[in-house]
Design a protein around this nucleic acid. Sequence first.
DNA 1: TTGAAAGCGGTACCAG
DNA 2: CTGGTACCGCTTTCAA
Lengths: 350, 350
Amino acid sequence: MNKIKIATGAKPTVNDIARHAGVSLATVDRVLNARPGVRTVTIDRVNKAINELGYIRDTAAANLARRRVYRFVFLMPGTRSEFFDELQAQIDAQSFALVNERTHLRTQRVARFDSREISVALDSLQSDTTDGVAVIAPETPTVRDAVARTRERGIAVVALLTDLPSSPRDHFIGIDNTSAGATAAKLMGSLTHAESGRILVLTGSRLSRDHLERRHGFDKVMAEQFPHLSVLPSIESRDDNELAEKLLPEVFSMRSDIRGIYSSAAGNNGLIQFLGSSSAKLITIAHELTPLSRSALQRGIFAALISQDAGHIVRSAVRLMRSTVDAVPFNAMQERIRIEIFLKENLPPC
Amino acid sequence: MNKIKIATGAKPTVNDIARHAGVSLATVDRVLNARPGVRTVTIDRVNKAINELGYIRDTAAANLARRRVYRFVFLMPGTRSEFFDELQAQIDAQSFALVNERTHLRTQRVARFDSREISVALDSLQSDTTDGVAVIAPETPTVRDAVARTRERGIAVVALLTDLPSSPRDHFIGIDNTSAGATAAKLMGSLTHAESGRILVLTGSRLSRDHLERRHGFDKVMAEQFPHLSVLPSIESRDDNELAEKLLPEVFSMRSDIRGIYSSAAGNNGLIQFLGSSSAKLITIAHELTPLSRSALQRGIFAALISQDAGHIVRSAVRLMRSTVDAVPFNAMQERIRIEIFLKENLPPC
DNA sequence: TTGAAAGCGGTACCAG
DNA sequence: CTGGTACCGCTTTCAA
């Protein structure tokens, strides 16, 4: 069975391989890194030694000798939101923590959440200064082509938050938004003990794939499991103030049978303001754990929160870009971003 | 403000420090590692250079030169359960993944979940073969003393799953079980739409601190928020079969007003068996995402699951043991284990 | 097609 | 108390 691998106690090194195969260090290295200029017979000898000794390359030492550094950029929409701020904070934190892992992070913001601008930004990335990019972008042909060009230049591309399945991105890091919407619906239906009534849905940009998916998942579960509650058409506002001061008061003055609100967008400021001053007894479910939403949950203004961990997303993106450029495998389980549910009871401290 | 740190582009190395301070490499190393035999004035010169150049030590290179290896052991109760199996699987997976991070993991099982045996196992750990231990143990004076002795021998000790707050353990890796119980209660109360009725609680060992805490958190929230549902005294069984074949049928034959079951223990096998064959319409909430519980959730036998990520726990334990032995800081946010809530809708695929 | 030797950023032993 | 130097495991010229 295990006649392979002589357990000498110590892990074999390139020197052991060289000696065992009767070649020099340089040749072992050539084989290890698939460099040209080695006879097939020699390659075989080296590989035989590698297998027999059970050699595993020490990546830390290799990176040291190679003076390898990873230069990654996070391409983010200029749109401000508490969640993007949190993401930015996590990038900065990692950026600092990663200096002694030879990994450099930088953030680049494009003015708007716009295919054209994002594609220009992607095209401006040079492979001699950038090894990988994590991009938050809508799924459009323009973006798809820019992603393809970027990868062709030898830059790893990972999609953040919203997937680009039609693009040749290397990985997607984020949640399944259809499931997230479905989860919100299940919570909404369970927490609302009314016999009947309506549910209001607040959405971000109707153009954004993730919001559509959330809405879709939400509607499906509401219809299937909670038919006594009917879901109103989405309302979309350009900014938080407009929502609080105009749209919401308008809707509530017209209808008195609204039992719950599902806010699938990122900004909750206006909503929280409105709820704080309103006397309506509502079940409100929103997305993303932020200082504002945490406080709303704690005060009972929000009933539940669906979230994705910004720190995890950033760390995952870095690991995946690294494993892409190194062409090494990664731990799929560790990189899976969870759809987190927060109630007041399981809110992490601090 | 930032007159410090000359941005030469490249990160300064020990050589730069030595040159800048006008001393040798060896002296820089002595200062860096707080080794004796350096004049205060020289120490100051070196530290000045370190600050001026903004030196950050390359841990990978240091570990290479030092030929440092980390040898950690996971001390687990022999008690089998799906969750412990998952934990074991994650340890094995990490063990493999960590070979080229110079980290060796091994598992040691004690026959029973017993203070005495655990303390004997801890005492048998030698600091020349072990750098750290992650231990799952009940909080007793015996364990506390063994933990103290182990740390005195220079071995890092972290508590897994159940905290040992009165022990001098270096870290606790796990969830707040009181909050976990509270979360279960909130879900139970929300998902049970009955006007009145009783809730059955199944517990593991009544001796285990985490089960007591879960029960406590559960009772508190039930009493405060759902007074129309009354919680029955815990029932505890020695094994899963006994539960399914004797205890549960007995209870249900005596009471017809049971609306929900909260299983705070780890084993769900017997419970699932019983529920599968029973016709009672119940809301059941259990702990830990495992193949069995996942399937039960998917089939609607369980309404919700409270869980903690075994992979995360193992990775966290390793990182914390490492940062303890190296006496370097760690990222508290990353090490915080979340109280995860799973509904059918947000179950991760696969 | 192959090998010798000089590092990468640190550590640690030995001499002075 | 301080400096010189070999070396950790691997990569990379430069010659042969």
